[in-house]
Computed example of a mutant assay.
Amino acid sequence: MPELSLLAAALVGLMGGVHCVGMCGPLVTAFALQRPGKEPRLLLHLSANLGRLVSYTLAGAVAGGLGESSLWLRQLFPVEQLLFGLAQVMLVLLGLYLAGWNRWLLHVERAGSVVWRRLQPLFTRVLPIERPGQAFLAGLLWGWLPCGLVYSVLIAALASGSPTSGALTMLAFGLGTLPNLLAMGWFANRLAAWVRRPVVRRTAGLAVLGLGLVGLARLFF
């Protein structure tokens, strides 16, 4: 059964960075501004992103476990192929959204806001960020921020069919997002202006769109 490779998951995270900077930029900036303590800024950003990666990995393991538990249905329905196809459709929608050609993915993010509304009060209690432990906890909560980019890869984790594969898929994706978000912590204004350029967004969108189309082609050829 075809599945989203770890390299592809990392590339989705990297190319989707234009979305990360726009959506998570305010949170990353908050880590930098809410810093009355003496801890190095880089240590706080690394701690926060470590917490985020832990949440992604946990979510991937749960999704992979759910996918594994549904494998008994494959005698009745092509569950694995359907989940993989859905993951590729999500990547196509993500690519169109990143390129600025379609906004359907926003409806998926709104659905996920139900969970975030319950977690957001906990996030505000962690502020101001003064120590790495606080940053790590904030990162754990940050990992559940509604995000169509995350949901696209989470469906791929569901299609992977095992907790280990699901966890590794989400971990690879999270590692792919690191360069953009760490850079955001240091060059917030310049990076935000750069990713707003149409050519940057369209290039990233086409790259993700291409991954989704290639995945769909693998289902039929």
Rank of each mutant, 00 (worst) to 15 (best):
A99Q: 12
P121A: 09
G161L: 11
V153E: 00
P121S: 07
S152Q: 05
P121W: 14
L141D: 00
L154D: 01
L122R: 10
R117V: 03
M170W: 00
R125V: 12
S160D: 02
Y151F: 15
L127V: 14
F123E: 15
L140C: 14
I129V: 14
S160A: 15
A99K: 09
L145M: 05
A159R: 07
E130T: 13
R103G: 13
L158C: 08
G174W: 03
G112S: 05
G148L: 02
G143L: 12
Q120S: 13
A156S: 08
G174M: 10
W142Q: 06
R110A: 01
E130H: 08
L137P: 04
G174V: 13
V150C: 12
A172F: 02
L141G: 01
G166E: 03
G133I: 04
L98I: 09
V114P: 09
L137H: 14
A167N: 07
V126M: 11
G112D: 00
G133L: 15
L94H: 07
A172R: 03
L105C: 05
V108W: 03
L96Y: 10
P128Q: 11
L96C: 10
G143S: 11
G166R: 11
E109R: 01
A159S: 11
G174R: 00
W142N: 08
A135V: 11
S152Y: 02
I155G: 14
L94E: 02
W104R: 12
H107V: 08
V114R: 09
E109F: 00
P163R: 07
L119A: 05
R117S: 11
V153F: 00
G143E: 00
